[in-house]
Design a protein around this nucleic acid. Structure first.
Length: 776
DNA sequence: CAGTGAGCGAGCTTCCGCTTGACTT
């Protein structure tokens, strides 16, 4: 057995490092944390100074046993987890879980995975920093207390199986408040005036496009100005040229990679991370969960060489960036190609595209500034004190722009590089055309996944490893959905002056359409309202930043961790108790009006299964009638008329093949029911308009599809079927599914084969009960 | 996947950060 055991966090890292060290070293991975608080209870002993009760995580038991065995046979165990709060804690948990001894344990750290860095680390070991471990423990306990006291309260007061936490609840708040900004936005309009002047200079024809420096509030003012311009003359009053330079963006961190991959490649945040993980595991890029913009010396040297070879020496500018991100821990390098000489790689389409993006960004970060010249031309109007302004930009030296240009969320922010004609002050200009057009102001843009990540990073909320999971959590809890906003058509008036005459035109233009945006659901909005009302301190945008300052004090050894937790918990727990005792159900109920048929009140609110409509008072003797709202209906905006229609279901269509057909709206949308079987309507179907013919069509379509997916049936047993599904062939037997191994030829199975396979194969776990099933 | 919704109350859920595969109909 090797004399030395090195433990790092990631298996890919372990493989690389093993190559740097000699045969006396075995390098293993802990796969992240090995111990944690028990998932099923609080596991923090409030009465014993908040002592946490740790246990080895279920999926780490065999790993810990293996590492323990290896450590017993080694002279020295090198704990080489990351150099940040979580990494220090991982080392300490390993120390505890493996039962290590001080004498034979050494703690080492490195920021880059290079041979010199590793060897240097081995020569400079230290002890585990228990202050840093305490800071992590405070972070862990705080998150557990907040999450496990708030979530049950939400379940009780709002709706079952909800959750709240330091990070997710603030993410939801951001989305809810942005939606409120959009809804309360008051749209105004103004008239923008553009003019075109033909110019001949250096034997070339140009069209000089200029915008009036002021806008008009009313149509009348705009018309008056254009009328006054019929007899006006135009003259160049000033030409100003200013040199400018642009610097490249720093190399990628997790957050900036997610943003750029979304803008340039259209990737979702989780797709970016999945593809990056593949690139990392195949050794193409450095670690993809990082908040650092730092590049290793080796990388800087390689980049310089690559830039020089491809573009020449004057394009080189070696730079080291410093992070400005709140709470960055910088345990890793920035995300970069491991081999900067490889401009492209082999792999899937997504892998190649993401890799090229990373390569370009890294290379560009080590290139010279772009040199520009910005020109502004002011054009005077003879009978007005107003001026037209034309501006343009010329690139004198492209520098890093040769390789890479960062994108912006707002397309309008892209710089326009109109080429302006060389022209002297005093030149008089002929007007070709002038146009005043109605422009509307735009509401703030809703968040995309990627812009939410940017905002969270700005607030210091969440970490590189949690951005993607947080986004999926708030969608899984149904606080937020990803969707499109169609926008509205607005009337746009245009007044044109050409050849000394005014012409007017009415048109329309689409405003406010958005794609792939995060939208709050009724539940999300209600939960946010509840939390803001009773726990505004935890929902505060600065809450995380403030507790981070306290964690820093703990890490510096100037404050005991449980003192900090006690201070927080005393007031927090009081709020929990008083809210539990003093507040009633929080349902967001809204009275829409009176049902004309029964004369009873009609409400909408959040029920046990989501938004619902209710006819009749809850307190009345007679049981109220209920109906779930449709997906596109919202508590705040739905009307009485729309709600009443929901009570038209279930609706009978008559009898077919001896059984009644009904159409109804269920949990998963509208459906047709026949002979105890359910058939979902197509998205294009209107449940109110379904007739007998269409219902039969829907039923037959589903039967055909099922027949197509059936590989084998058996005459002697209707419950045994061999089917073809999304994940390959499987046996369906007595409502349980059994996935067939690849070695089996599904078409050739006999009934006896199937019976045997059903006994051998572990049934496919059902998604819903999977968490429960594991435990039992 | 499938038609719930009050109230009662038993029993359960739930957090954030570190890591990968296993698994899904």
């Amino acid at each position: 057995m090797a004399k030395n055991l090195v433990i790092v966090e990631s298996p890919a890292k372990a493989k690389t490092i093993e190559g740097f060290l000699g045969k006396d070293f075995t390098v293993k991975s802990s796969y992240g944390h090995v111990r944690d608080l028990n998932k099923n209870n609080l596991s923090v002993n409030i009465d014993k100074d908040f002592e946490p009760e740790y246990e080895i995580s279920d999926d780490k038991k065999t790993l810990v046993a293996e590492l323990t065995k290896l450590s017993k046979g080694a002279d020295t165990v090198w704990l080489a987890s990351d150099e940040d709060r979580e990494g220090e804690s991982i080392s300490w948990h390993l120390y505890e879980a493996l039962g290590l001894k001080d004498k034979e344990t050494k703690r080492i750290v490195f920021h880059e995975i290079t041979k010199p860095a590793i060897l240097n680390a081995i020569e400079n070991p230290r002890d585990i920093d228990m202050n840093l471990v305490a800071a992590q423990q405070a972070r862990r306990v705080l998150d557990r207390l907040v999450g496990y006291e708030l979530s049950p309260l939400l379940c009780k007061k709002v709706k079952p199986s909800l959750s709240a936490g330091r990070v997710q609840s603030v993410a939801v708040r951001l989305i809810v408040e942005r939606e409120e900004e959009v809804n309360s936005f008051v749209q105004t309009h103004s008239y923008r005036v553009m003019a075109q002047f033909p110019v001949t200079a250096d034997n070339q024809e140009y069209t000089l496009v200029a915008e009036l420096s002021t806008r008009f509030d009313s149509e009348e003012e705009a018309r008056n100005f254009l009328t006054s311009c019929i007899d006006a003359t135009f003259r160049v009053d000033a030409v100003e040229k200013k040199p400018a330079s642009k610097s490249p963006a720093p190399p990628f961190t997790t957050s900036t990679l997610q943003q750029e991959a979304a803008r340039k490649l259209g990737f979702s945040v989780s797709n970016t991370m999945r593809v990056a993980q593949q690139l990392y595991e195949s050794g193409r890029i450095t670690y993809m969960r990082t908040d650092s913009v730092n590049l290793s010396k080796i990388a800087l040297g390689l980049a310089k060489q690559e830039v020089t070879e491809n573009y020449g020496g004057k394009y080189v500018k070696t730079r080291q960036y410093t992070t400005r991100t709140k709470g960055a821990q910088e345990a890793h390098e920035a995300i970069r190609p491991t081999d900067l000489n490889a401009q492209t790689i082999k792999g899937t389409n997504d892998e190649r595209r993401l890799y090229e993006l990373i390569w370009k960004r890294t290379i560009a970060s080590q290139m010279a500034d772009a040199q520009l010249e910005r020109t502004t031309i002011n054009i005077g109007v003879s009978n007005s004190d107003k001026q037209f302004v034309a501006s343009g930009e010329v690139v004198l030296f492209d520098g890093f722009l040769k390789v890479y240009r960062e994108s912006y969320d707002d397309d309008h922010a892209e710089d326009k590089s109109d080429l302006l004609p060389p022209i002297a002050v005093g030149t008089s200009l002929d007007l070709d055309k002038m146009e005043a057009q109605q422009r509307y102001t735009h509401h703030p843009l809703r968040y995309t996944e990627a812009s939410l990540v940017r905002k969270m990073e700005e607030l210091g909320i969440g970490r590189p490893s949690t951005y993607a999971p947080t986004i999926s959590t708030i969608q899984k809890r149904d606080y937020v959905v990803k969707g499109d906003i169609p926008g509205v058509m607005l009337d746009v008036k245009t007044i044109t002056l050409k050849n000394g005459k005014l012409k007017e035109k009415e048109g329309t233009e689409k405003y406010g359409s958005e794609k792939g945006k995060l939208l709050p659901t009724d539940v999300g909005a209600l939960v946010n309202k509840f939390l803001l009302q009773y726990f505004d301190d935890v929902l505060d945008y600065n809450f995380t930043a403030n507790v981070e300052k306290e964690f820093d004090k703990i890490a510096a050894g100037t404050c005991p961790w449980n003192d900090m937790i006690k201070r927080f918990y005393n007031s927090f727990h009081k709020q929990i108790v008083s809210t539990t005792d003093n507040s009633g159900k929080f349902s967001g109920e809204r009275l829409l009006g009176v049902d004309p048929v029964s004369g009873k009140n009609v409400f909408v609110k959040i029920g046990r299964y989501g938004p619902l409509a209710q006819i009749g008072d809850t307190e009345s003797e007679e049981k109220p009638r209920f109906a779930g709202l449709r997906k596109n209906q919202h508590i705040e905006t739905v009307t009485l008329e729309e709600v009443l229609k929901l009570f038209d279901f279930p609706r009978s269509l008559g009898e077919w093949q001896g059984h009644e057909i009904t159409v109804a709206i269920g949990r998963f949308g509208p459906y047709v029911k026949h002979d105890n079987a359910f058939y979902s309507l197509a998205k294009t179907d209107d449940p109110a308009a379904i007739d007998m013919d269409r219902a039969i069509e829907i039923i037959n379509e589903k039967h055909e599809k099922e027949a197509q997916n059936t590989i084998r049936v058996f005459d002697n047993d209707a419950e045994m079927k061999v089917m073809n599904g999304r994940f390959g062939p499987y046996i369906s037997y007595q409502k349980t599914n059994y996935k067939l191994p690849k070695s089996v030829d599904a078409k050739a199975l006999t009934y006896e084969d199937c019976v045997k396979l059903v006994q051998e194969i572990k049934p496919a776990a059902k998604r819903r009960s999977s968490s429960k099933g594991k435990k039992a």
